[in-house]
Amino acid sequence: MMLRVFFAFGLVVTVAAGLTANSAFAETPVEVLAAIKAEASGTPGFQEFSAARGESFFKTKRNHDLSCSTCHTDNPAAQGKHSETDKIIKPLAPAANEERFTDMKKVAKWFKRNCNDVLDRECTPQEKGDVLAYLLTVRK
């Protein structure tokens, strides 16, 4: 009886620990890109992701005179700064910050939030894929 209880407890602790560890680095940026591609390839007019297109998208000012680079700077491997609050933003390029694009939920949340701020709409899967393709080419 006691043995089983210990086993059950051990299982719960292991699962809990596993979940905690997973939530830190659930995915790799390449996996995240593949997930975006799976989504994008189903949309009309899909083109293979392009780092060049992503870079231009990243640096082009849109509504409210904002672009991605307004906060993330023209160099995604560098530290950025929030345009309103001056809060420091850690580098966005995975080469400079290993935490970036390792959690699909987080990626979705921030694309949604930031695209709404910059474009007044959500980004398309094509745009997200292009941007991530670009960020993956950025070296430290």
């Binding site: 009886m1 209880v5 059950a8 407890f9 299982l11």
Partner: peptide, 21 residues
């Protein structure tokens, strides 16, 4: 017996959850 183990597992799961929260 099996029922008891199940209950214990649930209880421990709850305890771990409560501690975490």
């Amino acid at each position: 017996m099996l029922f008891n183990v199940k209950n214990f597992t649930r209880m421990f799961a709850v305890v771990v959850l409560v501690i975490g929260v």
